[in-house]
Nucleic acid binder design. Structure first.
Length: 813
RNA sequence: GCCCGGGUGGCGAAAUCGGCAGACGCAGAGGACUUAAAAUCCUCUGUCCGCAAGGACGUGUGGGUUCGAGUCCCACCCCGGGCACCA
């Protein structure tokens, strides 16, 4: 009997049934192949947005598909629950961040449940709980033991709005990644760092292992971020002294053309020369500006260095375009062969000396130069190296410098060590103690976790809030038992998300971050899914942590995730959904009006998952119509054909069975290769349309077979509807526990096919022929075709191209 | 400036290996049912010429390769993203 589709009623009922049956519990039976599908865990802001919903709809479709294909699936979810929003909300509303966070988690978990995502909540992880963050602390201690965690005074990025330090990765165009309008300041603070640079080369090399499964874009962004360049480090002696300054250059072949040495304004020698105050305006002149708009500024220090290759004296300058953080913070300026140096030297009247000529040309006339000649050529006026091509000169000069002890080949990375100290409350306490007598002392492992104290007064002044808590801050030194101070900074929350995916495999372990054997049974992650905005933050940190944990002996592999998928953003009215733009669709409202299945199907249908999705309310109606059509058809015929043969009798039977099996083939292929679920759903719509069109001509048993398999195919996309119809058809159990429908190649096969006939590449007719018709026969039919004839009149056939079962092209003139 | 993507109807898109461009959905037009509306169902819908049959044109622009190009090659234009005074 045809029924009315009532998604809200159906969805609530099935969510209850799934819970009661523990349907999503992870199967630990190791006889079946495993599949680990992971979606990036959310920050518990309190409400799920449509970007999350899209991310999880993709992951859930995959998880359910793999489940139906016979894999035991690990499909976990958790909470990246430390972080500033909780603290800011606490200051604003005078509420405990923990209480606020846990209430948000409860609300979002309920929303996830109401979307019907197949998460195993027994593996849930929440990073703000001591059961989790104690292992952040433990890992930190292990890194400290291996000198991978260290403390140093450093120029750091300070966001006045966040009142805390930011990692380089969290600074975007000189502004805070959380506050687009807030300019980041530089402060000199003592901070904890993780030695990510120790893994720079491995992070690059191991791209090879993941290249096949990660988007090229992400790999290329990471390569650029790590920024390896090969070159030479050269020591220049201060004239009249034995002190040296080192510069890094990729073009040592140009060194005979160096006419001055330029220090970054923050370089140690600037202070040494007593010029720090004068150099300050140079620092400010480049702060948060587009480099193209910044005029080059310099200060002559009046000092000189000696060029170790040429023996010549070169003045030392300070320049605003030299970066302290890259290379050694000092450069040799070769104006003739570097455009930036050229601009600087011309402005300040520093000589230009050409030493590289084009391979088939002459040395440039320095006085007439209007721009630098910056490509490889042949060295001239370069002592013993004259006449050598650039690359040869580089090798020879490296060898010479190394022999003489003033230079050596070197590799420089753009990647910096990861500053992780945050002067905030809602994060993992750094497990260190400062003792006046013993210095920095690690908290003994047995004293972990260092628990974040509750009821802390938050003021947002920029001082670490934990300093205001004497019972936390004042502690006995573990070494000498004297009075000591705890480290009161907390860890960057990106630490939390750098290894959470391991914890899912063993979430309740209180002896170790995880059991090595348990994670080995699930890793690597078969498919990781999340937003591309994490390409250089989270995804570099996560790879770094995996390598570090491998070196600690916790795991044995190099890379956490075999495959990564980055889905597009959800856009509405031409902009990313955001509160400030007022174009947000609330998940709760949507569930009330349309239900979960409509949301899921719409988000998968409206665009292929890697592209941005334009949210369109009319399109949503269309998906509702599709689900309703399928529901009505299935319920109308639910009782028919039980126990009857599914052998085709009528032509309609054969046509629809063919369509069904072609659809199964297509969707299976989409899941296994391209993930173009928009076309999977289009195929299911076509099948549904055909069912309606042939409704009266189908044998009951065939109709039942087709409807049953269509319901199974819908399982990954609209799981509530699928289970409801599965039950309506008189079946037991859940769609998720059924096998994925098999393609019957014989049924999918078309015997009679239509092939286009072209004359000179233009479509003129179509032939209906049996599949496999011989070339000659097709050619004969094409030439005799009544629609083709007029186009051949008066012409000579020069050639006939026949692609069997595909097309015919008659070339004539 | 450098590195990635991308450009197809009114809109979201499809065309997976060089072989019928525009599947599927939205929007629109017309019709059926209805006292009426909603819902549902049916038909049409790239542009131009034509009563029609049919024809011409058509995947950012210009060239090229090919029997045949949205797809491959060269040059260019535009849009989006990433990085950016990286020595």
């Amino acid at each position: 009997m045809e029924k009315q589709y009532n998604p809200q009623e159906i969805e609530a009922r099935w969510q209850r049934e799934w819970d009661e049956a523990n349907l999503f519990q992870t199967d630990l039976d190791t006889t079946r192949p495993k599949y680990y599908v992971l979606e990036m865990l959310p920050y518990p802001s309190g409400t799920l947005h449509m970007g999350h919903m899209r991310n999880y709809s993709i992951g859930d479709a995959l998880a359910r598909y793999k489940g139906m294909r016979g894999f035991r699936v690990l499909h976990p979810m958790g909470w990246d629950s430390f972080g500033l929003p909780a603290e800011n909300a606490a200051i604003k509303n005078n509420r405990d961040p923990g209480e606020w966070t846990r209430a948000n988690i409860a609300a979002m978990k309920d929303q996830l449940r109401r979307f019907g995502f197949s998460y195993d909540w027994d593996t849930e992880v929440s990073s703000c709980e001591p059961e989790y963050y104690r292992w952040n602390q433990w890992l930190f201690l292990k890194m400290y033991e291996r000198d991978l965690a260290y403390r140093k005074k450093a120029q750091v990025n300070w966001c006045p709005e966040c009142s805390t330090v930011l990692a380089n990765e969290q600074v975007v165009d000189g502004r805070c990644w959380r506050h687009e309008d807030t300019e980041v300041e530089q402060r000199s603070l003592r901070q904890w760092f993780l030695r990510t640079t120790a893994y720079a080369q491995q992070l690059l090399d191991d791209h090879e292992e993941i290249e096949a499964g990660w988007p090229e874009r992400v790999i290329s962004m990471q390569k650029h971020w790590i920024g390896r360049s090969t070159g030479t480090e050269v020591d220049f002696k201060l004239d009249g002294s034995d002190e040296k300054v080192t510069v890094f250059t990729t073009r040592v072949d140009t060194i005979f053309g160096a006419t001055c040495l330029i220090l970054a304004p923050q370089h140690a020698w600037v202070e040494k020369f007593g010029l720090a105050a004068r150099a300050q305006p140079l620092i400010e002149s480049v702060a948060r500006r587009d480099p193209a708009d910044v005029e080059k500024l310099g200060i002559d220090t009046g000092r000189f260095v000696v060029n170790p290759y040429s023996g010549g004296k070169m003045p030392i300058w300070i320049g605003n375009f030299v970066l302290l953080a890259y290379g050694t913070g000092a450069i040799m300026a070769v104006p003739a062969h570097d455009q930036r140096d050229f601009e600087f030297c011309r402005k300040y009247g520093i000589p230009v000396r050409a030493v590289i000529r084009a391979v088939d040309g002459e040395l440039a006339d320095e006085a007439a130069m209007v721009e630098a000649f910056s490509i490889y050529g042949v060295a001239e006026n370069s002592g013993a190296f004259s006449g050598m091509p650039s690359s040869e000169a580089i090798d020879a000069m490296n060898a010479h410098g190394e022999a003489e002890g003033f230079a050596k080949a070197a590799i420089t990375y753009r990647l910096r060590d990861w500053g992780i100290s945050r002067q905030r409350y809602w994060g993992t306490p750094i497990p260190m103690i400062h003792c006046e007598a013993c210095g920095v002392v690690p908290v003994p492992e047995k004293d972990l976790p260092v628990v974040l104290p509750a009821n802390v007064k938050l003021t947002g002044t920029g001082e670490s809030p934990l300093k205001q808590v004497p019972e936390f801050a004042n502690v006995e030194c573990p070494q000498c038992a004297g009075p000591a101070q705890r480290e009161c900074d907390t860890m960057d929350t990106f630490i939390d998300s750098s290894w959470y995916f391991y914890r899912y495999c063993d979430p309740k372990n209180d002896k170790a971050p995880f059991d090595t054997k348990k994670v080995a049974g699930w890793f690597p992650i078969d498919q990781y899914i999340g937003g591309v905005e994490h390409a250089v933050l989270h995804l570099i940190y996560a790879r770094f942590f995996t390598k570090m944990m491998r070196d600690l002996g916790l795991i044995t592999w190099n890379e956490p995730a075999k495959r990564l998928f980055t889905q597009g953003m959800v856009i509405r009215d031409g902009a990313k959904m955001s509160k400030s733009k007022g174009n947000v669709i609330s998940a709760d409202d949507f569930l009330k009006v349309h239900g979960a299945d409509v949301a899921r199907v719409f988000s998968l249908f409206a665009a292929p998952p890697e592209k941005d999705l334009d949210w369109n309310d009319a399109g949503v109606e269309g998906m509702q119509r599709f689900l309703t059509r399928l529901y009505r058809f299935a319920t109308k015929h639910a009782a028919e054909g039980v126990g009857e043969s599914a052998e085709p009798v009528t032509d309609s039977d054969r046509a629809l069975l063919r369509k069904l099996h072609q659809t199964i083939h297509k969707i299976t292929d989409d899941f296994d290769s391209r993930w173009h679920f928009n076309t999977s759903l289009a195929a299911l719509m076509e099948l549904t349309n055909d069912l309606y069109a042939q409704e009266a001509n189908l044998s009951a048993g065939v109709l039942r077979d087709i409807v049953t398999k269509t319901v199974l195919l819908m399982g990954p996309f609209a799981p509530h509807l699928a289970d409801e119809l599965w039950r309506e058809l008189g079946n037991d159990g859940f769609v998720l526990k059924q096998g994925w429908p098999e393609v019957d190649a014989a049924l999918a096969h078309d015997d009679q096919i239509e092939i286009p006939v072209q004359v000179n590449g233009k479509l003129r007719s179509r032939l209906s022929v049996a599949r496999g018709t011989a070339r000659e026969e097709v050619e004969r039919l094409a030439k005799e075709d009544s629609k083709v004839g007029p186009h051949l009149a008066g012409k000579t056939i020069r050639k006939v191209v026949v692609v069997p079962d595909k097309m015919v092209n008659i070339v004539a003139n």
